[in-house]
């Protein structure tokens, strides 16, 4: 066949040029295809498995929803939330996730969705060890992948439900296929091309296995801001068991109970914050506001005075002080000095 091809060229020089050109093209194609594609994290994990990571794990009872066209986002999130205790279908989630003209769903909206149902949405660090660690702890992980190539992307959401380091495989509920088992290295390629993005959707009393305090606090604040104080209070409670001296968690717990109108519990949290953190002016301010609403005027005055003493610049504390002063009808502080 090659000889026949060869005879078509009158001049060997032209053939050589064509050959060189072809080789160059092939090389360029391969470079494009393989560019930046070493599955480094899985290789490192297979060579040195952290002692805390089980060799294999599988999360049972993760419901599977086969995706309809372009609906992998709603399908994947429905699996996550149904597992977490909110039985929801992809069709129910689609109006809040799908963007018709883009034929898909955005990562930011995927992160916001669990909040609507009072569930914790926790973005994972871009580490394969963390991802597998969560699966090992029994938590399914929602991942973002580019199934095709960087220059020809095919963006996709799927749910990791298991892995086996001995077989070097990972198992996903993906697209039309439940329990889709692929080599770990292949998964890493597709995951790397989508920026190593992964998230958890957890019940609010369950902490991620490899939890970072700042990340968790941000997730809890998001719940508060999404008008889910009950769920936020549960996250803060779980966080306080882990980090008893976290000022953010203590204050967040107080603020959540305040939003719920449970002044006693809010007051307890703020009071504890002033004990643990005697220099936290914000804790005294919020405590003063709660005392004030409880009708404990003297306690309110003492607390706001302490807040002002720690930070005399704050307009907010001054507002609290004014409110207390006006309501009591007295010149504030006069009867104490």
């Amino acid at each position: 066949m090659f000889s026949r091809l060869f005879t078509r060229f009158d001049k060997p020089a032209a053939w050589q040029r064509a050959q060189a050109c072809g080789r160059l093209m092939m090389g360029a194609c391969l470079m494009l295809m393989l560019g930046a594609c070493a599955a480094g994290q899985s290789q490192a994990l297979l060579q040195h498995r952290p002692a805390s990571l089980p060799v294999a794990a599988h999360v049972d009872h993760v419901p599977f929803f086969a995706q309809s066209e372009f609906q992998c986002g709603p399908a994947a999130q429905a699996m996550m939330l149904s597992w977490a205790g909110k039985p929801l279908s992809p069709e129910q989630l689609s109006p809040g996730l799908f963007i018709p003209d883009k034929n898909g769903s955005l990562q930011i909206e995927m992160l916001a969705m669990p909040l609507r149902y009072g569930m914790l949405a926790y973005p994972l660090a871009p580490k394969l060890a963390d991802l597998l660690g969560e699966v090992g702890a029994g938590h399914p992980v929602l991942v973002f992948q580019n199934l095709a190539l960087s220059w020809y992307p095919q963006w996709h959401y799927a749910v990791v439900i298991g892995y086996d380091l001995h077989d070097r495989t990972i198992t996903l509920h993906s697209g039309q296929e439940a329990e889709h088992r692929i080599p770990l290295s292949t998964f890493e390629h597709t995951w790397a091309r989508a920026g190593y993005w992964a998230m958890l959707s957890l019940p609010p009393d369950t902490l991620p296995a490899r939890v970072d305090e700042a990340r968790l606090m941000q997730a809890a604040v998001s719940l508060e801001q999404a008008s889910q104080p009950q769920a936020a209070a549960m996250v803060y409670q779980a966080a306080l068991q882990r980090w008893p001296l976290s000022l953010t968690a203590r204050m967040g717990r107080g603020n959540s109970y305040y939003s719920l109108g449970q002044l006693d519990k809010a007051g307890q949290a703020f009071y504890q914050a002033t004990i643990d953190h005697p220099d936290a002016a914000a804790a005294y301010n919020n405590l003063a506001q709660v005392y004030f609403e409880q009708g404990r005027k003297d306690d309110a005055r003492d607390a706001i005075r302490q807040a002002m003493h720690l930070d005399g610049e704050s307009q907010l504390y001054r507002n609290t002080q004014d409110a207390i002063r006006n309501a009591t009808g007295n010149g504030y502080g006069v009867n104490h000095e």
């Binding site: 372009f70 992998c72 883009k102 955005l106 199934l147 963006w155 996709h156 959401y157």
Partner: peptide, 12 residues
Amino acid sequence: IDQLPAGGSAVG
């Protein structure tokens, strides 16, 4: 919104 990747995947 125009530039961000949207996961829709596979079919079609």
